[in-house]
């Protein structure tokens, strides 16, 4: 049976508890569907935290220092605003300050739409990319998730994993699309990869060939030689992300790409306004239409 991203997370977690004396920590883990089925339905290795959204991350940091390699689950990424300090100021700086690592695997889950509203919507990986020494990844496929996990388990850094509920049912991998006739290269992250793929397919049908490069590790960010070659060959780049555009991941990575390639690279992310609960007030992951419009503006 094909495995989804949710299955992958759940089975990695189960094995981590069984084989590594690992542990998963979070609020209301057992209630209502075991966090969209990403946590194994068992008591072993499970730490039900109280609703302490500031101390909770500190508990995870402490657990990490003892070698349990906690998976710290945040059911909504918005809770990162409360949990940030132990992650940014202790876990990330631990090696520089104390010389020992603090490997916490932070599973920050993004949601949007269906009434999630002004506070519970969206991804916030940009703010963590801003902090020094905190690796940030946004895997959206089963294979990517496994590779991020492999990195975590073979290093002693914390990792901020920006997940999105939209990926949980994904079974297939998302290979880069590189075309000789491309006029533009789209680089996409997080949930924007799904909309960017649709946009690129629709553009292709309209006769506008675009490359699509999927970004999984957002920090440290190291574009592959093939990605840079594709960008140079077509001469135009666009980075698409589902965090806020201002001071966000898309602009930061666009800048890195421009420096590395000498090519002009644009960026789009979320609009600079709070999302509302009702559909007409949402501020969604850039839609295929929005990406297509931006590409059209850039190629004409």
């Amino acid at each position: 049976m094909a495995r989804t991203v949710a299955d992958t997370i759940r089975e990695l977690t189960r094995a981590h508890i069984a084989d590594n004396n690992g542990v998963v920590m979070g609020q209301c883990l057992s209630a209502v569907g075991w966090v969209q089925n990403t946590v194994p339905a068992q008591a072993e290795g499970m730490v039900e935290l109280p609703m302490t959204d500031v101390a909770g991350a500190g508990f995870a940091v402490g657990m990490a220092l003892t070698g349990r390699r906690p998976i710290f689950v945040l059911r909504f990424q918005s809770f990162l605003w409360l949990n940030a300090s132990p992650l940014v100021n202790y876990a990330a700086k631990s090696k520089s300050m104390f010389g020992y690592g603090c490997p916490v695997f932070v599973r920050a889950i993004a949601a949007e739409g269906s009434g999630t509203g002004p506070v519970h919507s969206h991804s916030f990986h940009s703010i963590f990319m801003h902090a020094p020494e905190l690796p940030v990844a946004a895997p959206m496929t089963p294979g990517e998730y496994e590779s991020v996990w492999d990195h975590f388990i073979t290093h002693d850094d914390p990792v901020l994993v920006s997940e999105h509920r939209a990926s949980y049912k994904t079974e297939r991998e998302l290979p880069d699309i590189i075309r000789e006739d491309a006029v533009l290269t789209v680089f996409a992250m997080g949930s924007a990869r799904f909309t960017a793929l649709q946009a690129v397919e629709r553009l292709a049908a309209q006769g506008i060939a675009c490359n699509l490069i999927h970004l999984v590790w957002l920090k440290p960010f190291a574009p592959s030689p093939q990605a840079l070659a594709a960008l140079r060959a077509c001469g135009r780049g666009l980075v698409v992300d589902a965090t806020y555009q201002t001071c966000g991941a898309a602009r930061s990575i666009a800048y890195d790409l421009m420096e590395a390639s000498g090519i002009m690279v644009h960026a789009i992310g979320l609009e600079d306004r709070s999302p509302g609960a009702y559909p007409h007030l949402e501020n969604p992951t850039p839609s295929p239409e929005r990406i297509i419009a931006k590409v059209a503006e850039m190629v004409t």
């Binding site: 609703m51 809770f79 509203g117 002004p118 506070v119 709070s274 007030l281």
Partner: peptide, 24 residues
């Protein structure tokens, strides 16, 4: 709240009832 938030941010400042952000 003009449909921004559904239940949590309801408020009525005339009556001194202040809105809730949604973070418990």
């Amino acid at each position: 709240s003009s449909g921004m938030g559904g239940s949590p941010p309801i408020h009525d400042m005339e009556k001194g009832i202040v809105g809730h952000s949604g973070l418990i």
